[in-house]
Amino acid sequence: MAVSSDYIVDMQKVSFSRGERLIFDNVDIRIPRGKVTGIMGPSGCGKTTLLRLIGAQLRPDSGSIMVNDQDIPKLGRSELFEARQQMGMLFQSGALFTDLSVFENVAFSLRVHTDLPEEMVRDIVLLKLQAVGLRGAYQLMPDELSGGMQRRVALARAIALDPQLLMYDEPFVGQDPISMGVLVRLIRLLNDALGLTSIVVSHDLAETAGIADYLYVVGDGMVLGQGKPEDLMNSDNPRIRQFMQGEPDGPVPFHYPANGYVDDLLGKESR
């Protein structure tokens, strides 16, 4: 107990493959409690998969994933739904329930998991909406909101039950600079004010490095590097350097693996 209590998530020797493709190969990742941890990597390296593994929407081929000292993949269906009440997840698209109003979206988990009187539900919902600055929009339907506002409502919904762990899946994708700034500030603010642990999965370098206390860089199914953002910036590892500096070519090649260029142009079948 004492060993892992500093870490809310402790993944050890986790392997996961989708079909033939190995996405994680013996990965160890530990998420410190009470901090904002960024998980970065190029597109398609399985960052979202990582969150789904933690949320047990996917099961690893091998390895253990401890969340709050519970081995998540080994839990039964009902225990799992219990455990997930401690987690909040902000999906890439917001994933608001389109047939419910903003208010009902935020109230949803309260209604399902608690027997609070209507007055209290109302107070809590307005409190959460106030935190994301959208209290005035509580009567609207999700499709009346902009993408950035939808994400903020989704954030309010994710914190409705005061989870210990909040996971953000690509929160900055497709946001204009203003809503991006709002989100960055909110993530930091909520983390500190509510005593949460946050995991931010993103490939947006500047924003993520700006708010994260600790960074993991993943790629090719492995953890390429970890540490404080400023340490990683100055890393010697060429792969990390390429990613952090945004160089087009390097250990991660610009070109998709192909036959010789000249051979191709001359029409030689090299198979």
Binding site: R52, R84, M89, F91, Q92, A95, H113
Partner: peptide, 10 residues
């Protein structure tokens, strides 16, 4: 992702 979202809400 509404279905996943439901799952994560428990």
């Amino acid at each position: 992702e509404q279905l996943s979202s439901l799952e994560m809400i428990g």
